[in-house]
Design a protein around this nucleic acid. Sequence first.
DNA 1: CTGATGGTTCGGCTATGACCGAAGTATGAA
DNA 2: TTCATACTTCGGTCATAGCCGAACCATCAG
Lengths: 225, 225
Amino acid sequence: MKEGPVIASVAALLGDPARANILTALMDGRALTVSELAEAAGVTLQTASGHLAKLDAANLLTAEKQGRHRYFRLSGPDVAQVLEALMGLAQRTGATRVRTGPKDAALRSARICYDHLAGERGVAMLKRAQRQGLIEGEQDLALTTRGRAFFADFGIDLTRLEKGRRPVCRACLDWSERHRHLGGALGAAILSAMIDRKWVRRDSGRVLTFTCEGVEGFEATFSLA
Amino acid sequence: MKEGPVIASVAALLGDPARANILTALMDGRALTVSELAEAAGVTLQTASGHLAKLDAANLLTAEKQGRHRYFRLSGPDVAQVLEALMGLAQRTGATRVRTGPKDAALRSARICYDHLAGERGVAMLKRAQRQGLIEGEQDLALTTRGRAFFADFGIDLTRLEKGRRPVCRACLDWSERHRHLGGALGAAILSAMIDRKWVRRDSGRVLTFTCEGVEGFEATFSLA
DNA sequence: CTGATGGTTCGGCTATGACCGAAGTATGAA
DNA sequence: TTCATACTTCGGTCATAGCCGAACCATCAG
């Protein structure tokens, strides 16, 4: 029974601490160089290079050469999704450490989940959008006609989003909160718009920091009413 | 960076072939003894016992003592869900072997996913139920009033299901097909009803075999119209 | 050309952990 | 009580794979 079930090979790849560090570092959807990933994983360049070769061979990552750098990114949103699911499971089963450092608090407050907003802010945004009748559904989300007008007004080109293969609305289970936040093409577009208008800033890693105007704008746009 | 991200410890548990075999053997939701699991994993009793202790310590499994047997089962549907997600990822990234034995074909046709119907039949059932207006939604499923009457007529006690904590309808991404099938409390109840009226028989492992009357009943109940 | 930086490959060290034989603990049957 | 079954624990072997130092390619700047 050496052939084992298909899941073992993939899971084993995710099971090494260094590789897991690399993958979580990539969960914000950006592409990083080998050196950056080595730093993030806490190993030397050679070691990281070996790990990356394996992850690439398994098609979990895609590589892109640019000058003398090689950039790696997750090969798709599904990889990020599996990682978040594993985090949820790890938390539920109590494997989580108590470490409640300041970085941890920041992560819980607002962070990037592949390419959209997650954490308390992300959960709040979806909840309020639902209460305002912009989005309907629970597990399966859909834009209402009112929501279409709202987000078009917010500066998002919905017809373009709907042309793509990617689902517009996608409910993504939040790792720290136990509720859902908004992913999909729309989730990505909203975050990108928020960054454009300087509501939010990318810090190191996956942490997102809201500016003063950002908080104000957020509260005004996604009001509780 | 030895502490590593939380996912590594869990993923490492799933990454061993023997343990992965054990977990997939439990994916049909039943509880199995140590010997049975050792057999399924292709290792000796002692080795299996060690693996089970680890999986139990990580709360992925729950143990239950009965006489001189110890029964293990998955600690919840979320574990099965993560396993299915990993299978999907393994398939997408091409880690899957070509092995297309007869057992594989049977698995694709109809199988148990934790406690509900999956495979071609499972996907077909949901699709037809949606077309008939019994269930609505795509990612997030909900019973229509027509659906309530229909399933009550089918012999399912919906008020009882709705009392439980478990969601009644749950869209579960199918591993072999690339579509959704119906999970949740309702999905479990339907499968159990089908077994009661001998539409379907549990074979070894996760394979489900439809009887002649089963196919007939299935087609009559979930018609294409 | 030379030198510097980013990345890969190779070789050897080491630790982890999977595995099984054998001995030890429960539970049930005769 | 005696034996058998189901399982756990212990001890020792062995293979795998992660890790780094060192040497080797590739790209860019002078």
